[in-house]
Computed example of a mutant assay.
Amino acid sequence: MVTTATQRLLDLAAIAPASDDEDLLLELLEEANALYQQGFEILRAVVARRVDGTSPEVLVAAVNAVGLPCDASRDRDELVLLLALTEWEMTPAALAYSEMAEVAARRGVCLVPEL
Rank of each mutant, 00 (worst) to 15 (best):
P17G: 09
E99M: 11
A105F: 00
V103A: 09
A16S: 07
A96M: 14
P113A: 11
L9G: 05
A84W: 08
L29D: 11
L81Y: 12
G39T: 11
E114F: 06
F40A: 01
V63A: 09
Q37A: 12
R106C: 11
L43R: 12
L26I: 12
P17V: 03
A94F: 01
A45W: 04
L83H: 01
S73Y: 04
A34E: 10
T54A: 10
R50I: 01
T4A: 12
E87L: 08
L82M: 14
V66D: 10
C70T: 13
D20I: 05
A101P: 03
L35A: 05
V58E: 15
A65T: 04
E31W: 05
F40V: 02
G67F: 04
R76C: 03
T86C: 12
L79F: 04
L95R: 13
R49I: 02
Q38Y: 07
L81V: 13
A105I: 00
Y97E: 03
E30C: 08
A16V: 09
Y36R: 05
L35P: 00
R74Y: 14
P69L: 12
T4M: 07
A62K: 13
T4N: 02
V58T: 15
E57Q: 12
V47C: 09
A93E: 06
L83N: 01
E89G: 12
D23C: 01
V103Y: 02
G108Y: 04
I15C: 07
A32I: 08
P92T: 15
P113D: 14
E31L: 08
E57M: 13
